[in-house]
């Protein structure tokens, strides 16, 4: 739809609207717009790029705005800078393993339930709608999904306490807020990622506190 608007604007000699988009299949996470007050438009498990005009009535007025969050400065029109999400992952959202020199893929059996749980969390597309929908501008669904995905897998458990501690610290440093249980994030998530992962994040954080990897009793080792 925005393509068509832009085509018209160009024909009329006006500036087209800048907006982020790429795969148009709802998987790359590039598209980002608040439609009628709701990130991605408010249709269940749907990104903006997969939101069809047939969902609206002829003559409806659409209000289109960029993501709103302190951690996502606006670059132009509907385009925001989501570099902070990358910084959260860089803070520890990975398993440290060198290329080569890893054991056979079947060496470590992983329960089907565990693999499914990890996959439920891992399908996050990193669009940032959860942040945009949160009244606190929190990225806890995003961080929770990554922490949970890696913490449930045996190969991710080695670094689990450090990971959660560092990602939470980065969350603070990047200007994201904290969760106060509005559940707006789950409601707008195009992948339907559950807030149960925020609960998992909190439990993992508690473990890190007890292990003195973070907080007032953080040990220096």
């Amino acid at each position: 739809m925005l393509d068509v608007v832009n085509e018209d604007l160009i024909r009329e000699g006006k500036e087209p609207i800048a907006f982020d988009h790429d795969c148009r299949e709802g998987i790359c996470g590039m598209c980002s717009a608040v439609i009628n007050g709701v990130p991605h438009g408010g249709f269940e498990r749907t990104t903006v790029c997969q939101l069809h005009m047939r969902k609206f009535k002829d003559g409806d007025t659409l209000y289109i705005e960029p993501w709103r969050a302190r951690a996502f400065p606006i670059l132009r029109d509907l385009v925001v800078d989501r570099g902070t999400l990358d910084r959260l992952i860089q803070a520890g959202g990975y398993i440290s393993c060198h290329t080569g020199g890893v054991p056979d893929g079947n060496a470590l059996p992983i329960s089907k339930g565990g693999a499914d749980y990890a996959m439920d969390a891992a399908q996050c597309i990193g669009c940032g709608a959860c942040v945009a929908a949160c009244p606190n501008g929190a990225a806890m669904l995003f961080v929770g999904a990554k922490v949970a995905h890696l913490a449930v897998l045996p190969q991710g458990q080695v670094e689990a306490p450090e990971r959660v501690a560092e990602m939470i610290q980065a969350m603070r440093d990047c200007g994201f807020g904290n969760c106060s249980n509005h559940y707006e994030c789950e409601a707008v998530c195009p992948k339907g990622i559950s807030v149960k992962f925020i609960a998992k994040l909190n439990r993992e954080f508690l473990k890190a506190l007890i292990l003195a990897k973070t907080g007032p009793f953080k040990s220096s080792d």
Binding site: Y94, I95, C97, T99, G100, V102, P103, D104, G105, L108, P109, I110, S111, K112, A115, D116, A118, M119, A122, H149, L150, L153, Q155, G156
Partner: peptide, 14 residues
């Protein structure tokens, strides 16, 4: 496959 498993890619399991 080994590398991706080590990185935590959640491949389907039986």
């Amino acid at each position: 496959i080994d590398q991706c498993v080590a990185q935590g890619v959640p491949f389907a399991r039986d």
